[in-house]
């Protein structure tokens, strides 16, 4: 059945309309969850506000278990969906740099757009920085090509990497996420108590 577009259930001409609508939903939810505020976002790293962790992990958990069930019900052909290819060196370097950018800027790209939309000047500067950063990367690409293509493993999934089944990974992820939620509630209670 799914993915609807590549299986021909939806005319590709509708692609951009769908993109726009999904973007509206995405932006609305991010903003409504409070992701347009950099201080709320940064709170996850200092233990005073875990909204990022709660929203993000819940979203991953729901989407992941949803895909497992969609796959089981044969509603989606899981072999047709895009799997991000793994370049080990590149993704580790990128992740570390992104973490640094996150703690300095207090936004990530998607959330900075929502900040811009409601008139946060720091989000505007973050977005400008984003353009600058990508421009720097692209211009310096010949120098860093080795890192970018380093450690290629192809489009592997965690099932390939750890040799476990889809269902088991989803279950472990759920258990880990719920444990994290309980843990951060406890941390937040302590941190905010100390401050007050």
């Amino acid at each position: 059945m799914g993915p609807l577009i590549s299986q021909g259930y939806i005319n590709p001409e509708w692609n951009f309309v769908i993109a726009l609508l999904l973007g509206v939903a995405f932006g609305y939810i991010l903003e409504a969850s409070g992701f347009s505020s950099s201080r709320r976002l940064a709170g996850v790293f200092y233990g005073y506000d875990f909204v990022v962790l709660r929203v993000f992990m819940t979203a991953v958990m729901v989407a992941m278990i949803g895909l497992v069930y969609f796959d089981y019900m044969n509603w989606i052909d899981i072999s047709q969906i895009f799997i991000l290819p793994t370049f080990l060196t590149s993704v580790i370097v990128g992740g570390v740099i992104m973490g640094l950018g996150f703690i300095m800027g207090g936004y990530c790209p998607g959330t900075s757009f929502t900040g811009v939309a409601i008139g946060k000047l720091d989000a505007v500067f973050f977005t400008a920085g984003l353009f600058l950063g990508i421009f720097i990367f692209s211009s310096a690409f010949p120098l860093i090509e080795g890192i970018y293509y380093g450690g290629e493993l192809g489009p592997v999934t965690v099932m390939d990497t750890f040799g476990i089944s889809r269902g088991l990974f989803a279950f472990l992820f759920i258990v880990a996420t719920i444990s994290a939620f309980i843990l951060v509630s406890w941390i937040q209670k302590r941190v905010t108590k100390n401050e007050v």
Partner: peptide, 29 residues
């Protein structure tokens, strides 16, 4: 922060939404 995120997102082939959120949901390593 934006500059760093911009550079990092190219190395990571996606940012928090593209790589971390969707990548993990689709169980990409």
């Amino acid at each position: 922060g934006g500059v760093f995120f911009g550079i990092g997102s190219q190395f990571g082939r996606g940012c928090t939404s593209g790589a971390a959120l969707n990548g993990t949901a689709t169980m990409a390593t």
